[in-house]
Design a protein around this nucleic acid. Structure first.
Length: 364
DNA sequence: AAGACGGGGAT
DNA sequence: ATCCCAGTCTT
């Protein structure tokens, strides 16, 4: 028989206290966010995909717009991918939109348009990883599935004063186990959202508000003055500089847009014919080469557009834009799978990247 | 285990 | 300039 103060028993009591403090704090301090007004699994799913690596403030105006345009899984599945990407335009990580569309088709075909309340089935959908499956199952269906995202990693590494790299496999498994232990009792939706909310508003990357934290008394990092130094920083990704050359080809007051291949960077989005500038290549040579090689068009003279920089997580791009009138003649695509002659107005409502939107805004 | 994959806001 | 965000997929 365990004694009253055995380690095992005090650990269990501590867990109970953490759950209760967290849930009570969450009920009191939670922000009023659009996706917290629904239990529609599809709406929760959409919000979780949009929120991947994307700030709440960025998602808020896009979430409602998305649901107005694609109100149900069936509506999304029925829409052409071009429309889906156009609606996603500007949000980044476009594989999320391609996967969401494909997953919607699968849900219609396999489950009649209703997201199954089964973690393995949801996890098997394209674009749904371990985190998103846990979030959908716990928030939409109230199941005891853990979640581990950037916020929860920060909260748990501090709570347990974990020094190891949180992205290393062994630490990942330990963190998932800790997250699972928290939802083993109580309300999994409140506990999971409480963990994320705490990480987003109190247990922040810099200058955490420990005096306002419901878990401060149980926090090992706080007790040892390490709240600001945990979690261990991850290794930064290398950013490569590249020069891009884009040509705006004009004919009858319309410009030529071409669709990128369905995968890879900006996959499935439209753009002005673009290619990397080669080492040592003059701008004039590059501009003419891009038009000739990528869409099979030539011109006599061209005008430069203002140069600008566009930064991605792994690239620092310098865009050199050119503007030229072209005569009649067939478009011969290379490396694109579709093209359209459109007005500038129509071009900006196609699925285009932020970089391309910036480029189009510089046209005369 | 590491890299690809966007964009923006905070410091 | 640096960090990093309600991550997933590929290699």
């Amino acid at each position: 028989m365990a004694t009253r103060n055995s380690p095992a028993k005090s650990a269990v009591l501590e867990l109970v206290r953490i759950r209760q403090s967290l849930a009570a704090w969450y009920r009191r301090a939670r922000r009023d966010l659009p996706w917290r007004h629904t239990r529609d699994p599809y709406a929760i799913w959409v919000s979780e995909i949009m929120l991947q690596q994307t700030r709440v403030d960025t998602v808020i105006p896009r979430y409602g717009r998305w649901l107005a345009r694609f109100p149900t899984v069936k509506a999304l599945a029925k829409a052409p991918l071009d429309d889906v990407l156009a609606e996603w335009a500007g949000l980044g990580y476009y594989a999320r939109a391609r996967h969401l569309h494909r997953a919607a088709c699968e849900v219609v075909e396999q489950y009649g348009g209703e997201l199954p309340a089964d973690v393995a089935a949801v996890r098997a959908l394209p674009g749904v990883g371990r985190y998103t499956a846990g979030a959908i199952l716990s928030l939409a269906f109230g199941q005891r599935e853990p979640i581990l995202d950037g916020n929860v990693i920060r909260v748990l590494t501090r709570l347990h004063a974990i020094d190891e790299d949180p992205h290393a496999s062994p630490t990942q498994e330990r963190l998932w186990a800790l997250a699972a232990e928290l939802v083993a009792d109580g309300d999994p939706s409140e506990i999971n959202q409480g963990l994320m909310e705490l990480g987003a508003t109190v247990c922040t990357p810099r200058r955490p508000a420990c005096t306002a934290c419901p878990l401060a008394r149980q926090c090992r990092a706080h007790a040892t003055g390490r709240s600001e130094t945990l979690p261990a920083p991850s290794r930064p990704t290398r950013v490569v500089a590249v020069e891009q050359v884009s040509v705006a080809l004009v004919r009858d007051d319309k410009i030529l847009l071409a669709r990128r291949p369905p995968t890879g960077l900006w996959g499935g989005l439209f753009e002005l014919p673009t290619d990397e500038r080669r080492p040592g290549e003059s701008l004039d040579t590059a501009v003419r080469r891009v038009a000739e090689e990528r869409v099979g068009l030539r011109f006599d003279s061209w005008q430069p557009l203002p140069v600008f920089h566009h930064v991605l997580s792994h690239r620092r791009m310098t865009f050199h834009g050119a503007y030229a009138s072209v005569d009649r003649g067939p478009v011969r695509r290379r490396g694109y799978d579709a093209h359209r002659w459109v007005t500038l107005e129509a071009a900006r409502s196609l699925g285009i990247s932020r970089a391309m939107d910036r480029l189009l805004s510089k046209l005369p």
